[in-house]
């Protein structure tokens, strides 16, 4: 009988933990409003299958043209899903959670404190170079999101990777 109660307790705890991780807002993270446009921009710029769209890559990003979250989805088919955007948010916030919370709490001031921003700008060694330079639409998108004032137009422009 004790085993049954223990098993039930663990199951309930696991269910609460998992559902909490999905539903609860993450401490210090900006509101999810606007995140999808940031996620689309990061996915298009950084999430190709040979970069952050690889399963083993730190900062793993999902995108409709890159790595997919669901087994029955494929690169290039359909749109980026809400689950994929949520996974991208966890990946971005989870890089440096405490520092991330501090940057957001301070209105997005000095975002270069974050490795994500330094790598994106090419201020720190990065195999992928500088996917967006200071002042470009991708940079504006990311900074505005950290300041909880997401510039969705900049994000949409930043997500367009034009052929030369």
């Amino acid at each position: 009988m004790t085993r049954v109660w223990l098993a039930a307790g663990w199951t309930a705890l696991a269910a609460l933990a998992c559902s909490g991780a999905e539903a609860a807002p993450q401490a210090g993270s900006p509101p999810r409003e606007g995140w999808a446009s940031v996620s689309e921009m990061l996915g298009a710029r950084c999430g190709s299958l040979d970069c952050h769209g690889q399963s083993g890559r730190p900062l793993r990003l999902f995108h409709n043209d890159g790595l997919r979250l669901a087994d029955d989805d494929a690169p290039g088919a359909g749109a980026t899903t809400t689950d994929e955007h949520a996974a991208n948010l966890r990946a971005v916030v989870g890089l440096e959670p405490e520092l991330f919370a501090r940057v957001v709490a301070e209105g997005g001031a000095a975002p270069e404190r974050l490795t994500l921003v330094r790598k994106a700008l090419g201020l720190e060694s990065h195999k992928g170079g500088a996917p967006f330079a200071l002042g470009t639409s991708g940079d504006v998108c990311l900074r505005s999101w950290l300041a909880t004032k997401t510039d969705e137009a900049a994000c949409a422009t930043g997500a367009q990777v034009e052929r030369p």
Partner: peptide, 23 residues
């Protein structure tokens, strides 16, 4: 549709079967 970002091998992303990690 999308550019190559760092890997010179086509097959790194283009395996012979389409999957969630291969085009």
């Amino acid at each position: 549709d999308t550019p190559v970002q760092r890997d010179g091998s086509c097959a790194s992303c283009h395996d012979d079967r389409t999957s969630r990690s291969s085009a």
